[in-house]
Simulated assay, not measured.
Amino acid sequence: MNGNFFSLHNSLIFDQRADNLLPETGNPEPLYPLLGPSPFTITNNTAPKLSGLCTLDFDAIDTMMSITATDCFTVFAPYLANVVCCPQLEATLVILIGQSSKKTKTLSLNSTHAKHCLSDFDQILTSQGADNTLQQICSVGPSNLTEASCPVKDVDGFEKMVNTSKILASCGKIDLVNECCRETCQNAISEAAKDLASVSNEFDAMGIRRMSDISTRVINDCKSIVLRWLASKLEPLRDKEALRGLANCNVNKGEPIMLHLIF
Protein backbone atom coordinates (compact mmCIF):
# COMPACT_ATOMS: atom_id res chain seq x y z
CA MET A 1 0.00 0.00 0.00
CA ASN A 2 2.77 2.43 0.98
CA GLY A 3 4.68 1.53 -2.20
CA ASN A 4 1.70 2.39 -4.36
CA PHE A 5 1.18 5.66 -2.48
CA PHE A 6 4.78 6.82 -2.95
CA SER A 7 4.72 5.77 -6.62
CA LEU A 8 1.58 7.83 -7.23
CA HIS A 9 3.04 10.76 -5.26
CA ASN A 10 6.26 10.74 -7.29
CA SER A 11 4.30 10.57 -10.53
CA LEU A 12 2.26 13.64 -9.58
CA ILE A 13 5.42 15.58 -8.69
CA PHE A 14 6.98 14.67 -12.07
CA ASP A 15 3.85 15.76 -13.94
CA GLN A 16 3.81 19.06 -12.03
CA ARG A 17 7.47 19.74 -12.88
CA ALA A 18 6.84 18.91 -16.53
CA ASP A 19 3.89 21.30 -16.59
CA ASN A 20 6.09 24.07 -15.19
CA LEU A 21 8.35 23.76 -18.24
CA LEU A 22 5.51 24.52 -20.65
CA PRO A 23 4.68 28.14 -21.63
CA GLU A 24 1.73 29.64 -19.83
CA THR A 25 -1.23 30.20 -22.15
CA GLY A 26 -4.85 30.96 -21.49
CA ASN A 27 -6.15 27.99 -23.42
CA PRO A 28 -4.37 24.87 -24.58
CA GLU A 29 -3.47 25.04 -28.28
CA PRO A 30 -4.82 22.25 -30.50
CA LEU A 31 -2.28 20.07 -32.25
CA TYR A 32 -2.16 20.18 -36.05
CA PRO A 33 -0.22 17.82 -38.30
CA LEU A 34 2.74 19.34 -40.11
CA LEU A 35 1.85 19.81 -43.77
CA GLY A 36 4.32 19.91 -46.64
CA PRO A 37 4.04 22.53 -49.38
CA SER A 38 1.33 22.04 -51.97
CA PRO A 39 2.63 20.42 -55.17
CA PHE A 40 0.93 23.26 -57.08
CA THR A 41 2.83 25.97 -55.21
CA ILE A 42 5.85 27.25 -57.11
CA THR A 43 8.66 27.71 -54.61
CA ASN A 44 11.68 28.06 -56.92
CA ASN A 45 11.65 31.84 -57.16
CA THR A 46 15.34 32.24 -57.93
CA ALA A 47 16.74 35.10 -59.97
CA PRO A 48 17.15 34.04 -63.62
CA LYS A 49 20.64 34.28 -65.13
CA LEU A 50 20.00 36.13 -68.38
CA SER A 51 22.44 36.47 -71.25
CA GLY A 52 21.92 40.20 -71.72
CA LEU A 53 21.97 39.55 -75.48
CA CYS A 54 18.25 39.06 -76.14
CA THR A 55 16.12 42.00 -77.26
CA LEU A 56 12.74 40.33 -76.81
CA ASP A 57 10.32 42.05 -74.44
CA PHE A 58 9.62 39.44 -71.76
CA ASP A 59 7.90 42.03 -69.56
CA ALA A 60 5.17 42.41 -72.18
CA ILE A 61 4.00 38.86 -71.54
CA ASP A 62 4.80 38.41 -67.85
CA THR A 63 1.33 36.99 -67.14
CA MET A 64 1.69 34.50 -69.98
CA MET A 65 5.12 33.49 -68.68
CA SER A 66 3.65 32.80 -65.24
CA ILE A 67 0.89 30.68 -66.77
CA THR A 68 3.46 28.74 -68.80
CA ALA A 69 5.66 28.16 -65.74
CA THR A 70 2.66 26.74 -63.90
CA ASP A 71 1.59 24.55 -66.83
CA CYS A 72 5.18 23.29 -67.13
CA PHE A 73 5.78 22.89 -63.39
CA THR A 74 8.81 20.70 -62.79
CA VAL A 75 6.93 17.77 -61.22
CA PHE A 76 4.29 17.40 -63.92
CA ALA A 77 5.90 18.67 -67.14
CA PRO A 78 7.16 15.27 -68.38
CA TYR A 79 3.77 13.64 -67.79
CA LEU A 80 1.51 16.39 -69.18
CA ALA A 81 3.86 17.52 -71.94
CA ASN A 82 1.65 17.02 -74.99
CA VAL A 83 -1.58 17.83 -73.18
CA VAL A 84 -0.74 21.02 -71.30
CA CYS A 85 2.88 22.11 -71.13
CA CYS A 86 4.25 21.98 -74.68
CA PRO A 87 1.24 23.56 -76.41
CA GLN A 88 1.35 26.42 -73.91
CA LEU A 89 5.11 26.77 -74.30
CA GLU A 90 4.99 27.01 -78.09
CA ALA A 91 2.07 29.43 -78.04
CA THR A 92 3.90 31.66 -75.57
CA LEU A 93 6.88 31.85 -77.93
CA VAL A 94 4.57 32.99 -80.75
CA ILE A 95 3.06 35.70 -78.57
CA LEU A 96 6.49 36.72 -77.23
CA ILE A 97 7.87 37.43 -80.70
CA GLY A 98 4.65 39.12 -81.75
CA GLN A 99 4.53 41.46 -78.76
CA SER A 100 8.27 42.16 -79.02
CA SER A 101 7.93 43.13 -82.69
CA LYS A 102 6.30 46.37 -81.55
CA LYS A 103 9.83 47.44 -80.58
CA THR A 104 12.09 45.25 -82.70
CA LYS A 105 10.04 45.67 -85.92
CA THR A 106 10.85 42.08 -86.87
CA LEU A 107 8.78 38.91 -86.69
CA SER A 108 11.71 36.52 -86.41
CA LEU A 109 15.25 36.22 -85.08
CA ASN A 110 18.46 35.04 -86.66
CA SER A 111 19.83 31.74 -85.37
CA THR A 112 22.42 33.28 -83.02
CA HIS A 113 19.96 35.71 -81.48
CA ALA A 114 17.39 32.93 -81.21
CA LYS A 115 19.78 30.81 -79.12
CA HIS A 116 20.31 33.63 -76.62
CA CYS A 117 16.60 34.41 -76.37
CA LEU A 118 15.56 30.79 -75.99
CA SER A 119 18.12 30.39 -73.22
CA ASP A 120 16.73 33.47 -71.43
CA PHE A 121 13.20 32.17 -71.97
CA ASP A 122 14.16 28.90 -70.27
CA GLN A 123 15.92 30.71 -67.44
CA ILE A 124 12.88 32.84 -66.65
CA LEU A 125 10.52 29.86 -66.67
CA THR A 126 12.86 27.76 -64.53
CA SER A 127 13.18 30.60 -62.01
CA GLN A 128 9.39 30.45 -61.64
CA GLY A 129 9.30 26.71 -61.03
CA ALA A 130 9.13 25.23 -64.53
CA ASP A 131 11.06 22.13 -65.52
CA ASN A 132 14.63 22.87 -66.62
CA THR A 133 14.55 20.45 -69.57
CA LEU A 134 11.64 21.94 -71.50
CA GLN A 135 13.58 22.15 -74.77
CA GLN A 136 14.05 18.39 -74.68
CA ILE A 137 10.57 17.60 -73.38
CA CYS A 138 8.81 19.75 -75.99
CA SER A 139 11.34 19.44 -78.84
CA VAL A 140 11.71 23.22 -78.97
CA GLY A 141 14.80 24.85 -80.43
CA PRO A 142 16.07 28.15 -81.84
CA SER A 143 14.28 27.41 -85.12
CA ASN A 144 11.00 28.11 -83.29
CA LEU A 145 12.10 31.75 -83.17
CA THR A 146 13.39 32.16 -86.72
CA GLU A 147 11.54 32.76 -89.98
CA ALA A 148 12.48 29.27 -91.26
CA SER A 149 11.82 29.30 -95.01
CA CYS A 150 9.39 32.25 -95.12
CA PRO A 151 10.99 35.06 -97.18
CA VAL A 152 9.34 37.91 -95.24
CA LYS A 153 10.23 38.58 -91.62
CA ASP A 154 10.08 42.33 -90.92
CA VAL A 155 6.89 44.13 -89.91
CA ASP A 156 7.09 46.77 -92.65
CA GLY A 157 7.55 44.18 -95.38
CA PHE A 158 4.74 42.09 -93.96
CA GLU A 159 2.27 44.97 -93.88
CA LYS A 160 3.11 45.92 -97.47
CA MET A 161 2.57 42.38 -98.72
CA VAL A 162 -0.69 41.34 -97.08
CA ASN A 163 -4.16 42.69 -96.43
CA THR A 164 -3.73 43.43 -92.73
CA SER A 165 -7.21 44.90 -92.39
CA LYS A 166 -8.70 41.61 -93.54
CA ILE A 167 -6.64 39.62 -91.03
CA LEU A 168 -7.73 41.84 -88.15
CA ALA A 169 -11.35 41.82 -89.26
CA SER A 170 -11.33 38.04 -89.60
CA CYS A 171 -9.21 37.12 -86.58
CA GLY A 172 -9.44 40.04 -84.16
CA LYS A 173 -12.48 38.50 -82.52
CA ILE A 174 -13.14 34.90 -83.48
CA ASP A 175 -16.62 33.45 -83.35
CA LEU A 176 -15.75 30.19 -81.64
CA VAL A 177 -19.08 28.64 -82.64
CA ASN A 178 -18.90 29.34 -86.37
CA GLU A 179 -15.17 29.55 -87.13
CA CYS A 180 -14.72 25.81 -87.57
CA CYS A 181 -17.42 25.73 -90.25
CA ARG A 182 -16.87 29.06 -91.98
CA GLU A 183 -13.08 29.15 -91.48
CA THR A 184 -13.10 32.94 -91.74
CA CYS A 185 -9.90 33.52 -89.79
CA GLN A 186 -8.17 30.39 -91.06
CA ASN A 187 -8.73 31.42 -94.67
CA ALA A 188 -7.40 34.91 -93.97
CA ILE A 189 -4.24 33.43 -92.42
CA SER A 190 -3.74 31.05 -95.35
CA GLU A 191 -4.24 33.82 -97.89
CA ALA A 192 -1.73 36.08 -96.12
CA ALA A 193 0.79 33.22 -95.86
CA LYS A 194 0.53 32.57 -99.61
CA ASP A 195 1.13 36.26 -100.29
CA LEU A 196 4.29 36.15 -98.18
CA ALA A 197 5.47 32.87 -99.68
CA SER A 198 5.05 34.21 -103.21
CA VAL A 199 7.99 36.56 -102.69
CA SER A 200 10.38 33.66 -103.20
CA ASN A 201 8.65 32.46 -106.35
CA GLU A 202 10.07 32.98 -109.79
CA PHE A 203 8.21 34.84 -112.50
CA ASP A 204 6.99 32.99 -115.56
CA ALA A 205 7.42 34.20 -119.14
CA MET A 206 4.46 36.56 -118.75
CA GLY A 207 5.90 38.17 -115.63
CA ILE A 208 3.41 36.44 -113.31
CA ARG A 209 4.48 34.56 -110.19
CA ARG A 210 3.83 30.84 -110.42
CA MET A 211 1.69 30.37 -107.32
CA SER A 212 1.32 26.63 -107.84
CA ASP A 213 5.05 26.18 -107.31
CA ILE A 214 4.99 27.45 -103.71
CA SER A 215 5.78 24.56 -101.40
CA THR A 216 3.55 23.62 -98.50
CA ARG A 217 6.53 23.97 -96.17
CA VAL A 218 7.10 27.61 -97.11
CA ILE A 219 3.40 28.42 -96.73
CA ASN A 220 3.28 26.79 -93.30
CA ASP A 221 6.39 28.70 -92.21
CA CYS A 222 4.76 31.91 -93.39
CA LYS A 223 1.63 31.05 -91.42
CA SER A 224 3.81 31.23 -88.31
CA ILE A 225 4.89 34.72 -89.35
CA VAL A 226 1.23 35.71 -89.80
CA LEU A 227 0.37 34.40 -86.34
CA ARG A 228 3.23 36.38 -84.79
CA TRP A 229 2.04 39.54 -86.51
CA LEU A 230 -1.50 38.90 -85.29
CA ALA A 231 -0.13 38.42 -81.77
CA SER A 232 1.38 41.90 -81.98
CA LYS A 233 -2.04 43.43 -82.57
CA LEU A 234 -3.96 41.70 -79.78
CA GLU A 235 -3.51 41.67 -76.04
CA PRO A 236 -1.65 38.49 -75.01
CA LEU A 237 -4.57 36.89 -73.19
CA ARG A 238 -6.98 37.86 -75.97
CA ASP A 239 -4.57 36.37 -78.48
CA LYS A 240 -4.57 33.23 -76.38
CA GLU A 241 -8.33 32.93 -76.86
CA ALA A 242 -7.97 33.43 -80.62
CA LEU A 243 -5.32 30.73 -80.87
CA ARG A 244 -7.42 28.38 -78.77
CA GLY A 245 -10.39 28.83 -81.08
CA LEU A 246 -8.29 28.11 -84.16
CA ALA A 247 -6.67 25.13 -82.47
CA ASN A 248 -10.02 23.56 -81.71
CA CYS A 249 -10.93 23.76 -85.38
CA ASN A 250 -7.68 22.29 -86.66
CA VAL A 251 -7.23 19.37 -84.28
CA ASN A 252 -9.45 17.04 -86.25
CA LYS A 253 -8.18 18.28 -89.61
CA GLY A 254 -4.56 17.79 -88.54
CA GLU A 255 -3.36 21.10 -89.98
CA PRO A 256 0.08 22.08 -88.71
CA ILE A 257 -0.30 25.83 -88.20
CA MET A 258 -2.28 25.70 -84.99
CA LEU A 259 -2.16 22.07 -83.92
CA HIS A 260 0.62 22.79 -81.44
CA LEU A 261 -1.00 25.91 -80.03
CA ILE A 262 -3.70 24.33 -77.89
CA PHE A 263 -3.70 25.58 -74.32
Rank of each mutant, 00 (worst) to 15 (best):
N2G: 13
N2K: 09
F6L: 08
S7E: 11
L12W: 06
D15E: 15
E24T: 02
E24M: 13
P28R: 09
P30G: 10
P37T: 07
P39N: 09
T41S: 15
P48F: 13
K49F: 12
S51V: 12
L53N: 12
D57F: 14
D62I: 05
S66T: 10
S66A: 15
D71Y: 07
T74P: 00
F76H: 10
N82L: 07
Q99S: 03
L107T: 06
L109T: 00
N110E: 05
N110A: 07
S111T: 02
H113F: 03
H113R: 04
S119N: 08
D122R: 00
G129R: 07
D131T: 10
D131I: 02
D131Y: 10
S139R: 01
S139I: 03
G141W: 08
S143V: 04
D154N: 04
F158L: 11
V162K: 00
T164R: 11
A169R: 02
K173E: 05
L176R: 10
N178D: 15
C180M: 05
C181T: 08
E183V: 08
S190E: 15
A193N: 04
S212Y: 13
D213H: 14
R217G: 05
I219F: 11
K223F: 12
L230P: 01
A231K: 02
L234T: 06
P236Y: 12
L237Q: 15
R238L: 01
D239K: 10
K240W: 15
L243T: 04
G245P: 01
N250W: 08
I262K: 11
